[in-house]
Design a protein around this nucleic acid. Structure first.
Lengths: 190, 190
DNA sequence: AAATATAATTAACACTGTTAATATATGCAA
DNA sequence: TTGCATATATTAACAGTGTTAATTATATTT
C-alpha cells in the first residue's frame, strides 16, 4: 500500500469513526452528512471524495460494529462448556450490546441505510458473528434435538432480532429486567 | 357524531387511504407529505389541519393494516383444528401478507415513523393480531409443552418478525421457496 | 518559482417535514 | 341576496436532508 492509499484510508477512517461515535452517542437520527463532516473536521462535500454515498459509509460502520459486538460478547464471562447456561449467558451479552447502543441496532437491523448491493456481505458478516459466538451451542443443540444446525441458528437469530426490535423500537416490554426474563425463557425453550 | 365530525373524518380518511395505497404501491420511500396530499387531492399543508403530524397519520395506517392483515390470514384456508399444520399454514399466510406488501412491514416493524406515545397502542394491536390468529395454536402448544402461553407467543412472534426482517430488508434467503422452507422448519421446531 | 495535479470547500439543486400568513369557501343573520 | 364571521385550504417560507458542480486552496513536480 503506497502513501496515497495510506492517507486515503486515514481520512476515510476519520469519517467512519465520526459516524460511529455519533451513532453511539446521539443515535441514528443525529447522523447527517453535515454532522459527520463537522465532527471529522471536514466539509460535508469531502465525504463524497472518499465514499460514493452515505450508504457506503454506513456499510463500513456496520462491519466495524459487528466486530466490536463479537469482542464485547466474547470478553464477557460465560460458562466454559457449551450448555443451556452458556447459550443464555451469551445471548444476554449480545442483547446487552445493542441495548447499550440502540442506534447500532437500528443501523444494522431496521433502517434501510444500506444499498442493496451490500446486503449479501452484511448478511454473511452477521452469520459469521452468530456462528463464531454460538457455534458450539448450535452444534450441541443440533445433536441433542437431531435438527439441522442451520435451523437452530436461524431460529435463534430470528428470536434475538425480533425480541430486540420489539424492545428497542416499541419499548415493549417497558422494563429491562422483564426483557431479560423473556429472553431467558425463550432460549430455554429452544 | 354531528355533520362537522363526519366531514372531518371523511377528509381524514382521504389522507389515510392515499397514504395506504402509496405504501402498498410504490413503497415507503415514496411517501411524503407532498405526495400524500397530491394523491388525496389537497395541498400538503392541509394534512396538518387533520393530523398533528405525519407520524399520527402513519399510526392510523398501521391500525388499518393490522386489521387487513388479520382478515387476509383468516380468509385463507387452514386446517380446522389447532395443530402443527394449522400453525404452519397460518404463519405462512401471515408472512405472505407482508411479503406481498414489504412497505407495510417496514412501516410497522422497522421504520421509526411512529411517535413514542403510540407505541403502547400499536404493541397492543399487534398482540391482539397474533392472539386472534394463533390463540388456539398457542393454547395447544402451551399445554403440550407445559410452558407459559406468553413465552410461546413471544417466541413465535419474534421468529416471524426476525425472519421477515432478514428476508425483506436483507433479501436473505434470496429465494421465496427457501424462505418458506425455513419458516416451516422453524415453526415445526417450536 | 511556475505549472500541474490533488484535495477540500462553497454554492446550488431538489428534496423533506412543518409552520405562519394568506386566500378561498362556507354558514348565517339581516 | 348581501354582508359578515367562521372555517377550511392554499401558498410562501424555514430549516433541514443527500448529493453534485464549480471553485478555491493545497501539495507535488518540473
Amino acid at each position: 500500500m503506497n502513501n496515497k492509499d495510506i492517507q486515503e484510508n486515514r481520512v476515510r477512517s476519520f469519517f467512519i469513526e465520526s459516524t460511529k461515535s455519533t451513532i453511539k452517542g446521539e443515535g441514528i437520527k443525529a447522523v447527517s452528512a453535515r454532522n459527520i463532516a463537522k465532527d471529522a473536521g471536514y466539509s460535508y462535500a469531502t465525504i463524497y471524495n472518499y465514499f460514493t454515498d452515505l450508504k457506503e459509509l454506513f456499510t463500513f460502520c456496520i462491519a466495524d460494529f459487528i466486530v466490536e459486538c463479537r469482542d464485547f460478547v466474547n470478553n464477557a464471562k460465560h460458562p466454559d462448556k457449551a450448555s443451556k447456561e452458556s447459550f443464555i449467558s451469551k445471548s444476554k451479552a449480545l442483547c446487552n450490546y445493542f441495548i447499550q447502543y440502540p442506534g447500532i441496532f437500528e443501523l444494522i437491523f431496521t433502517e434501510q441505510m444500506v444499498e442493496v448491493r451490500y446486503n449479501e456481505k452484511i448478511s454473511a458478516d452477521i452469520d459469521l458473528l452468530y456462528n463464531s459466538i454460538f457455534g458450539d451451542e448450535y452444534k450441541r443443540l443440533s445433536k441433542k434435538r437431531d435438527v439441522d444446525i442451520s435451523i437452530i441458528s436461524e431460529l435463534h437469530r430470528s428470536v434475538i432480532t425480533g425480541l430486540l426490535s420489539k424492545y428497542l423500537l416499541r419499548r415493549t416490554p417497558s422494563d429491562y429486567r422483564e426483557f431479560m426474563l423473556i429472553l431467558e425463557q425463550c432460549i430455554k425453550y429452544i
